[in-house]
């Protein structure tokens, strides 16, 4: 299984390490030529959404990645990655791929002093250690997406078909269950597609 990891800026190495532990092959996406056929999924990591959003456009990665996700490529997005996926953003903040039916609030917990760690249930996974670093949260979820986890009444994980988004950083803990969940999503997509081909 080959999974692209957007490697423009941020904590992409941590996602690559998590994939390695699970036996999946992570591929760094730094420029257009890296985003080739043969990728089964993509991870949008944490970092600064303003930096990644700008580089996506300038390195001509925006359209191909958006098209692939819109066509059903499984995507795991964490923190800044969630901001990249969200259809709407509060306070007239910029949106990027705008594919997921959620509204995001950037820097929802304030500056670094507001960063925190907590353990909460994720639907389908169970209690999970969550690290929030200058994190966003999902302030509202539209009918196409559904909530997977909330912290203090705010949505911090959601899913919409092929799109999985978390406001926290599963790549910063040793708990690999979010990455396994994502790999299962990919396996299901691959299985469905093969069934269709044989049918």
């Amino acid at each position: 299984m080959n999974i692209g990891v957007l490697a423009l800026q941020g904590a992409f190495a941590e996602h690559l390490a998590a994939l390695r532990k699970l036996g999946a092959n992570g591929v760094e996406i730094r420029q257009r030529a890296d985003f080739h056929a043969g990728l089964d999924g993509i991870i949008l990591p944490g970092g600064e959404s303003t930096v990644m959003g700008k580089l996506l456009r300038e390195l001509e990665l925006y359209a191909p990645i958006r098209d692939a996700i819109a066509a059903g490529m499984p995507v795991l997005s964490t923190c800044a990655g969630l901001i990249l996926l969200a259809e709407r953003a509060e306070n007239n903040e910029k949106t990027y791929f705008a594919l997921m039916d959620i509204t995001v609030r950037r820097n929802a917990y304030g500056r670094q002093l507001g960063s925190f760690r907590t353990t909460t249930d994720i639907a389908g996974i169970g209690p999970y250690p969550m690290v929030f670093i200058r994190a966003p949260f999902i302030s509202s979820v539209g009918p196409k997406a559904h909530v997977l986890a909330t912290v203090d009444g705010h949505v911090v994980a959601a899913r919409q078909q092929n799109m999985l988004a978390t406001a926290f950083h599963p790549e910063l803990t040793d708990d690999l269950r979010v990455h396994s969940y994502f790999i299962n999503m990919i396996a299901q997509v691959n299985a469905n597609c093969c069934q269709q081909q044989t049918a």
Partner: peptide
């Protein structure tokens, strides 16, 4: 310890950046 980890984590988010 928790705070120090969170602070090291913020630095991780800056990686690959200017």
């Amino acid at each position: 310890d928790n705070r120090y980890d969170l602070n090291k984590n913020l630095a991780q988010m800056l990686k690959g950046g200017v």
